[in-house]
Amino acid sequence: MTQKAGWRPYLAPLILALAVWVYGPAVFTAVLSVMKWNLTTPPSGLVGLDNYASLFRHPEFARAAGQTILSALALLPFATIIPLVLAVMLWQRPGRASVVYRALLFVPVVVAPVAVATAWKFLLNPLQGLMNRILEVFGIPPVNWLGDPGTALLVLVAITAAKVVAFNLVLYTATLSGIDRALVSAAELEGATRWEISRFIVGPHVARTTVVLALLSVVLAGQWTFTSVSVLTQGGPDGVTDSVYYRIYALGFQFFDTGAASAAGVLVLLAFAVLATAWSVVRRSRRASH
């Protein structure tokens, strides 16, 4: 349609929402990061890179960043190979059983993180929780899952892993349903085994999805861990479950150090900018090679 004018009122709400609640705050975060300010007193002027310096002076931030990256790496198999295998299995045998399994496997996508965290707190109760009761059967002494620095991060990664598997299973399912079943029938007539079908038809189809999901889970997993951390451990014990996301929250809303929290926010944004650039480079090179 050639009506040139008149698109503005249609696009304005989106532009406004993005500008006021995403892009504006991103810029404002950068401004706050070079100011000395806590939420209770008026801003007391520019302090340059002091906030950044203080982040690096204290070991908490570096450790939180390290643990964030570690969690993301630990989640990679749960973002890619595990949901892929499950999705392919569901795809291979469509039917009523698949529908039931799929519904159950999707549950972690939609259950509130607070409810999941509550359930785990109950299951991992150090005195009477089901987990320790099971260990007891095998003669293993009880574990203080969330209180022991050796296990706490593991538990949080496991909780997030379930959500990542479920979420990416949804996306893999969507990808696989884009495969033409006629192609599969043709391959079967040619005598292809199930493995060969997976390798030569499914494989190329999901290759790009896998790269994207790996990156996406890095983006989302840290944010998903936030609620569990907030409800279950508040970053403890001894800071082993801290992440940059929780650190920003703690700095800003518990220590009221707006400047430091904003500096941390800017560093996270920069890290994502690097990731996004890497992604677009990968995409461009893939497009060029096709």
Partner: peptide, 23 residues
């Protein structure tokens, strides 16, 4: 516009939450 949306989607909410809260 779609690029702007994709970028907005990738911004971690915690990174911009202080200005959102202040506003």
């Amino acid at each position: 516009v779609l690029s702007a949306c994709t970028i907005a989607l990738a911004v971690p909410p915690q990174a911009i939450i202080i200005p959102q809260f202040l506003l």
